[in-house]
Design a binder for these strands. Structure first.
Length: 442
DNA sequence: TCTGGGGTCCTAGGACCC
DNA sequence: TCTGGGGTCCTAGGACCC
């Protein structure tokens, strides 16, 4: 038996912790660059703000209905996420972090001793609310997909009473339900709400007469696979109670690392793109070292904005293989800049760029080689600079991100930095910065 | 005027091998 | 004029997730 624990409107709820006056008000948290609404309070949802809706489309609600928008504050959310996980982990033998605000719990080993799952779920919610102030919902099910569905039902039932025939809001257990009850819940749920069925597949299913989860569960497995995909077949089997998606409490290290940003303002000059990519590659390299890996290739991409119809469009990427896997910031940056030289074209208004580190492998893995002098190999390839990188990471951890960085990304005479991300509404990083601690007046 | 970032998995098709 | 069979690996693109 699995549980899925999921925070309600997570980013908004984090903001409310330190500004209780926001409770009851329509609030949204914006994506990077203050672009889209990516977390919405229930009041904002009620005003009709859609997930990922561009801010310029809903900002009129600011004046009309007192909608408040905040820039995202990932340091705060990341830290609250760790606290959430710490509490949740105490409730089950195994926990799998699924996203910043979601955790699967596996109760298989303690099935018998579990007792009433609904009351366990209520205890967990109350515990989290009391200790760290975050509202959550819990869904139980014999497979991950069913636990996700149970969570969806718990959330919807809490936000909109009467939307589902359930006894408790905030916790839903699909385990013990008799099939009549289960079918009633399935019938009331559109197929697009199922984990793994997105906005492409949902309309196709509906066109085929499969509108509710109940319709889906009654579809022939083989027909579904032929018509759609093996992925959808797996979802169907999960909905019928056969576990197909394994539980993984020790996730494998990432296979790729990406750092990309939309620019605050369009960038035209290659030198400014180079600055931005230097910073992105540096950040990617830090994350690479944090997971003790090395990259075998660097991919760079630059693109204009597809939303600006009047602009000439240009979008390209190039993958730069490295002589040998490395986690050295300078080597990765220089590969990224070489890549940029290959794809940069003058005359476009670039809106976004990014760096991906590919072919990751554990840093401990070292291909032995003959040390032949090679005229092609730049000096840095032949020197072990692990210690330098370690020192740099340590300094940045101690004095804050960016305390020590390559000069290539820093302000420079004659260069603007139009690529810097906008965040005009960011709240203080209450839990991670000494100089941004909240003040209590007595 | 203004539209996020960071991932994973699957499939099809091409290149290549013997 | 007539041109095999079986396999692997890589890449690009699409779909999905939060």
């Amino acid at each position: 038996m699995y549980a899925l624990l999921d925070a309600n409107n997570f980013y908004v709820s984090c903001e409310r912790l330190f500004r209780p006056s926001l409770v009851g008000r329509p609030v949204v948290v914006l994506s990077n660059n203050d672009g889209c609404a990516i977390s919405r309070s229930n009041e904002a949802k009620a005003l009709g703000v859609r997930m990922a809706q561009p801010w310029f489309q809903c900002r009129h609600l600011e004046r009309e209905h007192g909608l408040l928008a905040l820039s995202s504050n990932y340091e705060l959310y990341g830290e609250m996420s760790e606290r959430l996980l710490a509490i949740a982990s105490g409730y089950a033998p195994r926990a799998e972090v699924y996203s910043i605000d979601e955790t699967f719990l596996d109760f298989e080993a303690t099935e018998r001793a579990l007792g009433d799952r609904v009351s366990l779920g209520q205890r967990l919610r109350a515990h989290i609310l009391r200790w760290i102030g975050l509202p959550t919902c819990v869904g139980f099910g014999p497979t991950k997909t069913l636990a996700k569905l149970a969570n969806h039902i718990a959330k919807t039932a809490e936000r909109t009473p009467g939307s589902y025939p359930v006894r408790h809001a905030g916790v839903c257990d699909l385990g013990p339900l008799e099939s009549d009850e289960l079918h009633a819940l399935f019938a009331a749920t559109p197929v697009g709400e199922v984990w793994g069925i997105g906005r492409r597949t949902a309309p196709q299913l509906e066109a085929a007469g499969i509108a509710s989860v109940l319709d889906l569960v009654r579809t022939d497995t083989r027909a579904l696979r032929t018509r759609f995909s093996v992925v959808l077949e797996r979802t169907l089997r999960e909905l019928r109670g056969t576990s197909c998606i394994g539980f993984d409490d020790a996730p494998a290290p990432n296979r790729q690392i990406m750092v990309s940003r939309s620019f605050g303002e369009p960038v035209l000059r290659g030198s400014e793109l180079a600055q931005a990519l230097t910073r992105f590659a540096g950040r990617a390299a830090e994350r690479l070292r944090a997971q003790q890996a090395a990259a075998g290739a660097v991919l760079v991409f630059i693109t204009t904005s597809p939303f600006r119809r009047d602009d000439a469009q240009y979008s390209r990427s190039v993958s730069m293989p490295l002589l040998r896997p490395t986690a050295d910031t300078a080597v990765l940056v220089s590969a990224a800049i070489s890549g940029l030289r290959r794809i940069y074209r003058k005359g476009y208004r670039y809106a976004k760029a990014g760096v991906m580190l590919l072919e990751l492998q554990p840093q401990a893995l070292r291909q032995r080689e003959l040390e032949l002098p090679s005229p092609d190999a730049p000096r840095e390839y032949t020197r072990d600079r692990t210690k330098l990188m370690t020192a740099m990471d340590r300094l940045n951890r101690r004095y804050g991100r960016g305390a020590l960085a390559l000069a290539g990304a820093e302000p420079r005479e004659g260069l603007e930095r139009p690529w810097l991300t906008k965040a005009e509404r960011r709240t203080p990083r209450y839990t991670t910065r000494w100089d941004e601690l909240p003040l209590a007046r007595v």
